[in-house]
Amino acid sequence: MNLLVQAASSDDGSFHGPSINEFFPPTLFTIGGLEFNRIFFIRLFATLVLLLVFWFGTRRMKLIPGRFQSVVEMGLDFVRVNIAEDLLGKKDGRRWLPLLTTIFFMALFFNLTGIIPFLNIAGTSVIGVPLVLAVSAYFAFIYAGIKNSPKNFFRNALFPPGVPWFLYILVTPIEFISTFILRPITLTLRLLMNMVVGHLLLVLFFTATSFFIFTAGSWWSLFGAVTFAFGFAFTLFEILVALLQAYVFALLTAVYIQLAVAEEH
């Protein structure tokens, strides 16, 4: 709470909202030129929790599962049924299931750190993780297309069948930019910006609460109650956003792979 009060007010008693500096915390220490900061350890924490959840959930599989195993199996089945097999069919769905499962749960757990007390920032709110996930999806798309049709993948992607030849002067550059450049960029920015905006809004609500209650005082505390209510409601909304963004990222990855293995390629 002291941190919130410090963030909300300055020595002159004025209110200061969140800034972009939230996403660039100071370096704690450096090893071999690699900087370690608070967000790095948040990502490490999310990774360890993710590994522990699946280790405990799958280490002693039973025919009649307990509650924890059931929850893990429900999560895995959700990705398998609603993302992998629904878009790619059973054969290709099972082939790409490990990648899609990894992307979904990695994005989900890293997103959820934004609403966990004492962490308070999503591991996906700095470009590194969204970029890694987007590049993984991009190379999966390229690999699937080349493996399915080594000779025709790039030709059909850049020169769509059925288009008059003279229109390729316009169509081919557009297809190249939209397919091979904009896809990884939009995947990265969609996840990144949702987490950035969500974090800034949560910080704004709760620092305003601290300011009204602990700095402004008096009847201003009523405004603090209002901003706290908005902050609590938006925290619940952020849980939904974290789930939706993980789902959309994995879904779009499956869509791109499906396009790459389509018959016309």
Rank of each mutant, 00 (worst) to 15 (best):
A46H: 14
F153D: 11
T58L: 15
L44S: 03
V248N: 06
F24D: 06
L88M: 03
V126N: 13
L131Q: 00
I181C: 01
A7S: 04
L251E: 04
K91S: 03
L3P: 00
A140Y: 05
G123P: 08
I121E: 00
D86M: 07
T235I: 11
F159E: 09
G17A: 10
G224R: 06
L88W: 06
V132D: 10
Y143I: 00
L170I: 15
V226L: 09
R95F: 10
G128K: 04
N120I: 06
F41N: 12
G57I: 13
T188A: 08
H199N: 05
P65T: 07
F176Q: 03
L201Q: 09
W55H: 15
R59E: 04
A216I: 01
E35F: 00
K151M: 09
M1D: 10
F15H: 13
D92I: 07
T58V: 07
G128M: 07
G57H: 02
G17D: 07
R183G: 01
A7C: 03
T215Q: 04
T253N: 09
V261D: 08
Y143M: 01
N120W: 14
V5H: 03
F211Q: 05
N120H: 10
P184R: 01
A137W: 02
F139R: 14
N148G: 05
W96G: 04
V197F: 14
S125P: 13
K147E: 07
N37H: 05
R59A: 14
N111M: 09
A7V: 07
R59I: 07
L200M: 14
Y247V: 08
F109P: 03
F110G: 01
M74C: 05
P161R: 06
P26E: 10
G13P: 08
F54C: 04
T47L: 12
E238N: 09
I257W: 03
L100Y: 03
S125D: 15
F223L: 14
G198E: 06
T188D: 01
W219D: 14
F232H: 00
M74A: 15
I181G: 03
S221H: 05
N156V: 12
G231D: 13
E35K: 01
L51G: 13
H199R: 08
F78Y: 12
I146F: 15
F141S: 02
Y143E: 13
P25H: 06
V71H: 05
